[in-house]
Design a protein around this nucleic acid. Structure first.
Lengths: 348, 348
DNA sequence: CTCCTTCTCTTAATCGATACAGTAGCTCAG
DNA sequence: CTGAGCTACTGTATCGATTAAGAGAAGGAG
């Protein structure tokens, strides 16, 4: 039987409230009595007010829930995700707020209950597709929520389509006309392989939709119809799946002269696939990514830098101290095209 | 005013308990009534039982607290820490348990209250020095706790001293006799610079103490007294501080022929310092690290591989489904010396 | 000497749910 | 016709705290 406020109160011979005050409002009782109470608590082994009970009474949990990619453990393999989380943690820490990583897990039902059982004051969502039932459950909680993929009351993100438009323009400017796009959530079948995306607008995933829109517009401006573009789905955002997806594109005839991956991780996989075939990135085939993770610079990958840390930091800020002005509650951050050796003039 | 069980109960005309059962124990009421209740809840905008109240009543929080390095946001810059967290997240997810990252923050008082306010069923501690007041506070909570740096009831770790002993033996075997050791928490002054460690045993930090013990024993076996060894403290476990600490060692006369860093991050910094001076790692000066982060392999750094992911995974397992046999509650994992080009025969 | 403060502590209501004992109504064996 | 057994709920205590309001004693002003 764990000691409670009452246990301590009985031991000292005071009321429960006085003990409560000894912890939370030292000015409400004499210093001597307070010391006596704390001393008794120490002796009994009472570690202070039960946080759950306190949360219930106070009406705040002191934590924000993080919905972090479909599988929590995956998130930690993604350097971009980790940077985002670092920014979020930074803000949380200065606001003395915890971060509850919600175990969405593999199955739908589990994710639903995990979201409903989370004792939090708000949610920060990162890379969870909007059609997940867990997302509706989170929304239903009626708590403040920042989702960089959904334009809610609070929002921090980038202009995805404009960023990929710049990538596309860069490549068409180099003379490229045969393109392959690789990404996740591009098809109904969640396996790695060629798929047909009739129109980017129809894609259910916000990020995939917007990024492909940008590519499409750039291609169109150079006279390349979307139907000429090869699209390959990657089962997951991993280097291996990126390599496998790129392989499908590279083994086509005629071979695309440029591979546009919607993330750096996939693009790094594409570079692996080039290497296996003895192709030179930037000469035989150009490759682009998105995110600008640290490894991208080392690999000489042309990509879009988006401020991951900043995005996480601002997400936290929006949740923990939302600006009064509604306009400031929707933040769009700048991106930058980083041109590196993985892109070059189209061959021939 | 948020709706509660009572609100829904009143709307349907049943008792509060029945509504509670509709959510938590569907077998306790007729399917028709249940549907009616859930429908009413939807209409009213009731998102399900309040998680905090449920936690209080049930006596479990459904989350474990993670005390993660003195500053939370720092943890995410350390690849080893992230791997550890990934393992922990993996276990947590399969057990349908959340992970509460506790905001220790910068100041002592804040860390204390953060630990006391965490609604959790246990703690997992990673790289928080044992003398922090927050650590005693966590211990005082009387919850299950895994700390890889403190030999408690539950423990998962490695034989730190044996691992560094192997590093030392490797270097003495290569003929090295003039050593510099760089690490954190080596001195009373938390600044980067030379410090004197009379005996490793006296160091307050568990990890620093054990690792230096291993080095010391290896040196002793080769006839090098500890007092001949240069020790340099690094203010923090960063590449920059590693470079700065290594600089102190390299600029001494006579120059040490080997620099032993107690983490890879510091060792990578040491390599930077070598480069700045035009010295060749493995030829002019040998450098060793500890952890085997991914960048270590790329840099050709000789180091000790310790299973970060596995360590996190087992920590979670110990907390969430502790073995019945007390002996199995203390796990020691194997380490492996990874010899790479950063170490070579002593010059002359 | 009375009234008003001030200080210190207590009383009681409340946060939102869960769990267990209890009860009404019904079926059915003996 | 009685009572055991079941279904489908209800009533109430409880989880462990916080907080506003109140109460008693001490001290100071008039």
């Amino acid at each position: 039987m764990r000691p409670t406020l009452q246990t301590v109160a009985d031991a000292v011979g005071v009321s429960r409230s006085t003990v409560s005050n000894a912890y939370g409002r030292p000015d409400q009782l004499s210093p001597e009595l307070r010391e006596k109470i704390l001393e008794a608590a120490r002796r009994i082994g009472y570690a202070g007010p039960n946080p759950t009970a306190r949360s219930l009474r106070r009406g705040r949990a002191g934590a924000i829930g993080v919905l972090f990619t479909p599988t929590l453990s995956y998130a930690f393999t993604d350097p971009y995700a980790v940077e985002f989380l670092r920014g979020l943690a930074e803000t949380a820490e200065t606001h003395r707020t915890g971060l509850l990583l919600v175990p969405l897990g593999a199955d739908d039902e589990g994710a639903l209950s995990a979201v409903r059982e989370a004792s939090v004051d708000g949610f920060c969502v990162y890379c969870v597709p909007g059609w997940y039932r867990a997302m509706s459950a989170a929304l239903a909680r009626g708590l403040p929520m920042v989702n960089s993929e959904y334009q809610g009351e609070l929002y921090v993100g980038i202009d995805e389509a404009a960023a990929t438009r710049a990538v596309g323009d860069h490549l068409t400017g180099l003379g490229h006309r045969r393109f392959a796009v690789i990404g996740t959530y591009l098809g109904t079948d969640p396996a790695t392989g060629p798929t047909t995306v009739h129109a980017p607008e129809d894609l259910p995933s916000f990020v995939s939709r917007e990024r492909l829109r940008g590519y499409r517009d750039a291609f169109a401006a150079a006279g390349v119809p979307w139907s000429d573009v090869v699209t390959v789905n990657a089962a997951a955002n991993t280097r291996e799946d990126g390599a496998a997806a790129a392989a499908y594109a590279l083994d086509r005839d005629p071979r695309p002269t440029a591979i546009l991956a919607i993330t750096d991780v996939l693009a790094l996989g594409a570079l692996d696939a080039l290497g296996e075939r003895g192709l030179r990135a930037g000469a035989d085939v150009s490759v682009t990514g998105f995110d600008d993770v640290p490894a991208a610079a080392d690999a000489g990958l042309t990509t879009v830098r988006q401020p991951a840390y900043e995005r996480g930091r601002i997400a936290g800020e929006l949740l923990l101290s939302p600006p009064d002005d509604p306009a400031e509650r929707r933040v769009t951050l700048d991106t930058e095209l980083m041109v590196r050796p993985s892109t070059g003039p189209a061959p021939d």
